[in-house]
Write a protein that binds this DNA or RNA. Structure first.
Lengths: 199, 199, 199, 199
DNA sequence: GATGAATGAGCATTCATTCAT
DNA sequence: TATGAATGAATGCTCATTCAT
């Protein structure tokens, strides 16, 4: 991708994250990377298109990270601990964009909502990411259940959703209330889960 | 509270929910309740203040509902099932404002996010709600644990956080991906939790 | 009508006449009457609406003048000479708007074209003015023909159109080429016509 | 003329006719002939110059057609009927440019007006065409008058202007009001004129 | 208490124009 | 010859805000 285009995309993503769609003005985005507003229109037909492309850019990366998270040859301990090692996840994402998700998960979620409101294709994309992840979770849980490592009474479909929701919710709540520190809580959460699902 | 002021507040809340902060213009809000834009400025110093007051109004109600959710004389089954009866929660909220949350939870959450982004005191307020709720959860879990109804190995502090996060995350994920229907999932989730925490 | 609104309308009409639709900027119009651009939007919902209202304002006046031009109790000499007394017509119009049609008939015609391109209702309105005038011309000519003052061989329908076209064309050509002075030519033209239509 | 330059000129003329001066962007013109906007600037110093050259190209053709219309060895009938055979005139013009004037005379006239407004030299050019044509008309009428085919009382100078104005006005009015169909009216107009000028 | 006129700063967007390559 | 990146000024439009009435 063209260098200027990429610069626009990254800076715009930052502005959109910090200020929302309406609050991010093309003028400010342009000035902050040393070009003029008109220059943006060389690469993006409209603010909407820029916003859309920013989100696709971000969600694609997240999709890739997400898919890399699941692997068939993990023990259940590795698997569950991996789910709750928030720090690793945050670092991976922070490296890609200039966003500190630990503090800004909140902005990130807000951005997802905004994207979904505006673009049906993003709704699909995000939906697919969650569906994929939770399906993979379910498949893994079923594997462990068959091996006798997960309580046979548990509904793995709902359990997969519960674990996914727990992860998302943890990041959201921790973002809103600094009393909760995921770096510390993460470990205990994983151990709790390992105890709870045990056969 | 003055009758006109209350009319403004309620109508504004509706507009904000339907159109977001930027999309809800004072002119439209004013016209829709039969006054003029200038009239709003008698009761609210700025659009920001109006928005803020709308959200405080809303969050206060949520706080009240949340606090009513916890009660000391519940069995563990009632307690857990209550946590995951999303439909009841939505209905309670919908009754307070004139918003159909079942369909519009998405807009509602979006609005909350916008408010939290804009006003630090609201972030604090929401943070406090979470802290309170999770603390109450922890106290309840400890009670059940002492009665032998919750596995003694489990860390109740982390477990409280996990259940709170699971609730929030469930609403978030279900808002993003309509494949997940909380009305159906809610029951199974509760049963799973009851199995998992059992001693 | 509100005083400011009328000031906007008149000044806008002048700008539209001099600079066309695209060339007339709301900013300049506003500044030239001592208000700001935003102020125009109090009275007109859009530039299009302002343009439309300007044209309706003008064409309504022209319609009134046109209709006053035809009167049943004229001799044929009065009638024909009236048609070619351009000076009187120009003065009447110039008094209403600030436009010197003698020099600017051209701009005026251009404005009509622009209006017709943009607004179907104006196309109808202008069409009706011409249709009305030429119909009235035809009725008058038929009256004179029955009295034996107009050659019975002539087709009064076409003749009415010819006289109407001659008037319009005279103003157009004289506007384009200063060699032709309607103040002088007008009289001779009328006398020529009187000779030509005579029985 | 350079081939690319001619392609630009012709395509630009088409765009200007279809979209007016303001509506025809250099980008669209350029793209439609497979070059880039910058390329146009090799051949034309500015959009204005391009527009001007388009119109000169067009007016030159009109001038040629006009001059070919007058010929010394015509009978008066041929002469007058030629003046009012609008269809032939339109066809001749349409053949020169790629414009269907029969349907698009309106846009064509609008473009002429825009050009005349913008460039004084074009106003002069058109003025000269009119002067030339009306002078030729006058010379022809004087010839017919001397032969006794035109009423000796008529002022041929004014009559020439009247016939020229009638032609122009007919096209203008017919352009504004589609009730008047020149294809039909043209014949009757010519016959009326032949009757009226007769000695 | 409330109106309505008016402001002014902001926004997305367009586009002729320039110029290094 | 021609490209394509970039500019910058302009445009229509929106809207929170002010204030005399």
């Amino acid at each position: 991708m063209n260098e200027t285009k990429e610069k626009i995309l990254l800076k715009a993503l930052q502005y959109f994250t910090e200020n929302d769609y309406e609050g991010a003005s093309l003028n400010k985005i342009a000035r902050s990377i040393g070009i003029t507003k008109g220059g943006i229109y060389h690469y993006f037909a409209s603010k909407d298109e820029l916003f859309h492309d920013c989100l696709v850019f971000m969600f694609t990366a997240i999709q890739d990270i997400s898919m890399a998270m699941v692997s068939e040859d993990m023990t259940i301990k590795e698997f569950v601990r991996g789910l709750f090692s928030f720090e690793d996840l945050f670092k991976a994402l922070a490296a890609m964009f200039n966003i500190n998700l630990l503090n800004d998960y909140f902005n990130f979620a807000y951005l997802m909502f905004a994207g979904i409101k505006k673009f049906p294709d993003l709704k699909l994309m995000i939906g697919n990411i969650y569906t994929f992840l939770i399906n993979e979770l379910e498949k893994a849980l079923l594997r462990y259940q068959q091996r006798g490592e997960v309580n046979k009474i548990l509904d793995c479909n709902a359990l997969a959703f519960e674990l996914g929701a727990m992860m998302e919710g943890a990041m959201l709540v921790a973002g809103l209330d600094k009393d909760f520190d995921l770096k510390i809580l993460g470990n205990t959460m994983a151990e709790n889960v390992l105890i709870m699902v045990k056969a």
